[in-house]
Design a protein around this nucleic acid. Sequence first.
DNA 1: AAGTGGTCTAGACCACTGC
DNA 2: CAGTGGTCTAGACCACTTA
Lengths: 251, 251
Amino acid sequence: MTASPGERKYRTIAAALRDAIRRGDYPPGSRLPGENDIMRDNGVARMTARQALAVLISEGRAEARKGSGVYVREFRPVVRAGLTRLTRTWDDGRSVWSAEIEDRALAVDQIEISREEPPGRIRMLLDLPDDEPQAIVRRRRYVLDGKPVLLSASWLPLSIAAGTVIEHADTGPGGIYARLAEAGYRPDRFREELRARMPEPDETELLHLSAGTPVMEIARIAYTGTGRIVEVNEMTADASAYIFRYDFNGP
Amino acid sequence: MTASPGERKYRTIAAALRDAIRRGDYPPGSRLPGENDIMRDNGVARMTARQALAVLISEGRAEARKGSGVYVREFRPVVRAGLTRLTRTWDDGRSVWSAEIEDRALAVDQIEISREEPPGRIRMLLDLPDDEPQAIVRRRRYVLDGKPVLLSASWLPLSIAAGTVIEHADTGPGGIYARLAEAGYRPDRFREELRARMPEPDETELLHLSAGTPVMEIARIAYTGTGRIVEVNEMTADASAYIFRYDFNGP
DNA sequence: AAGTGGTCTAGACCACTGC
DNA sequence: CAGTGGTCTAGACCACTTA
């Protein structure tokens, strides 16, 4: 030990391990010193060793596996491009962060369509009438290489989509946007809003998130040419699995 | 107590508090039961009460203040619009999540310009020559209502910006993009990539982040008409202070 | 001065993993 | 079956906030 003026033992131990990881002493996927190792090497009590490891875990750097050990986490995201439709021509494929794999198979794992009363924010956006507070919601879960990475809930007003193929799991070629266009509600402007936060317990379960992993929340609003909102899609993504990309032209 | 089949005491206690917060029993900013309250009310040991509170803190729902108590956190983000230049005309101001304040004063708090050897990813993007690995970097910190919310590091190649006003703190009207245009390197395409992760210790300090707060990392790349990269701007934002917005037209 | 959260110790039993 | 992390107890001293 001997190191660091930060005083607190667990921080000193955590900092030493963090540096070792950064130095490459413990490459991604490798096993870190366990609680017993830390107790012995640093002469501290059980809880102190655990607290040091908890720092690295909550930073998203390490991951505990019961009965086995604590391991260095890996980061292998996919890129989700929000604007390729517009700018496919100049996509040179380069990404700032190493995203090794642009096209791993993203598949729908679970799908469920129902009518529900949406949360207030959705209801306001969809401008639902007071006497009919329900909307159509299409909930999906996407998996990447077998691991769930994205939850999606797409909300549409009954007045537009009730009784149409949009209430079926298979919406045909072009998906719901093609069906909306056929019904005279072609989406031609989109807004996406993104924020990051720590997951709710149910999200942790559905996305198999390990501790120290935030989620990215994306809300996409689809507008017709007249400014009417025809769909609101709320997505929740495993932040460690995604990079979001937006391309656009200057002024 | 009595509740919950989840077995573990600390989870049961945390779940009860979480529900109470959601119900509105503890509004944002209010004080939660402390360690002593939890020990007494649930008949558990100190560490168990702490563990229950740690769950809420790591979820970003609560915040501990030494010597005072544990409080329910508030979420008051600003919207950062990535594409208003393009679509100012149809901005109706509505946001999915309640972002009460679009225009609180965002100010530069710290600024520092230097020449440095950039990290590998930046160096590759800027296509720096092997014999001159340095680049110009403009580092800034932004504060919102006195709280730091964003760190920005803007990288430019020496071959373009060395010796120009871009190496000064004040770059004049229109900022560095106007200066780049004057020098024959007008940026006319942009790419932004976003990801979320837990903060590094130094980011926690610089942004005054409380536990359970992720950061949003944004990398903006500026291209000239010929596809040359003239600037890479890496930003790190307090995720609890920001909503990122992108507007775009359909196919 | 009383109460709060932060750190730390030294034990205990458990469920799970891996050999 | 030995080792691992997960949970829990019952103490202790400290620095800090609040009144």
